[in-house]
């Protein structure tokens, strides 16, 4: 029996797309490993404000999400809640996320008219989908969002927990940190006092690139989250937060 030519063509296209986008590495280019940072740099690094620190309560962002031909706009609301608010969820996707003790983070994206696109619950080890707009209810998409939000909300590793690298051209510092298969690369200024971006992945599909504009605040004023594999761009602008 011959395989259906259309299916074969689609399969080849899919594999080609995955192969091409899979080539994008989350490890920044042009790095060379460096021994532990000097005490001064380490001290500066430790003083960088932790984004979404332990005391973080909630934040409201203006949000634009592009996935393929779909363009969604609205508001993203992030709220950290005590673990007593944990509820059973429709679907859970396992991710190695280690937030501050016993809290959950609820992430709700709605359009301008208030209609919810998705309502997610980020737990220490998984992402729960409380609700999602049906066309978005794709397991692969939640895997991508799970890694993206885990990367966004993860506490900053300490100086000693990092494997340090220097970028040849810019002298920027990169901290590599991993838990299990969750690989993370944090890119800092040469003085180790500003976080520019971070990249992470657990599999080939969920490669995530996050760029920040933090203005030295604990809540970044702008966040751009991207995933080249599924051609996802999620742009956030801070409106309010505490």
């Amino acid at each position: 029996m011959h395989p259906c030519p259309i299916r074969l063509f689609c399969l080849i296209n899919l594999l080609a797309c995955l192969a091409l986008s899979g080539c994008v590495s989350v490890k920044p280019k042009g790095l060379s490993e460096t021994p532990m940072l000097s005490e001064n740099l380490c001290a500066t690094f430790e003083q960088i404000p932790v984004l979404f620190r332990e005391e973080f309560e909630k934040a409201l962002f203006k949000a634009t999400l592009d996935i393929g031909k779909h363009h969604l706009t609205g508001l993203l609301f992030i709220k950290r809640m005590p673990d007593t608010a944990w509820i059973s969820t429709v679907q859970d996707f396992l991710i190695p996320y280690h937030p501050p003790v016993k809290t959950i983070t609820r992430i709700l994206f709605s359009n301008e008219f208030g209609m919810t696109y998705f309502d997610l619950e980020l737990k220490p080890d998984s992402l729960g989908v409380i609700y999602c707009f049906e066309p978005m209810n794709k397991q692969a998409l939640w895997k991508v969002f799970g890694t993206a939000f885990a990367l966004l909300m993860s506490p900053k590793p300490s100086c000693k927990e990092c494997s340090w690298f220097i970028q040849h051209q810019t002298n920027a510092l990169t901290c590599h940190y991993s838990i299990g298969n969750f690989q993370r690369w944090y890119n800092y200024s040469p003085e180790a006092n500003i976080l520019y971006s971070c990249n992470g992945r657990t599999t080939l599909l969920d490669k995530t690139f996050i760029q920040y504009l933090s203005n030295g605040q604990e809540l970044p004023t702008r966040i751009n989250i991207g995933n080249p594999v599924i051609k996802m761009k999620f742009r956030l602008v801070l409106l309010s937060g505490s």
């Binding site: 509820i87 609820r106 709700l108 709605s110 208030g114 409380i130």
Partner: peptide, 15 residues
């Protein structure tokens, strides 16, 4: 005035 009530989050967004 638009008020979104998020029941489980016990919060609201006002526009």
């Amino acid at each position: 005035t638009q008020q979104k009530e998020m029941s489980m989050l016990k919060d609201q967004i006002i526009s």
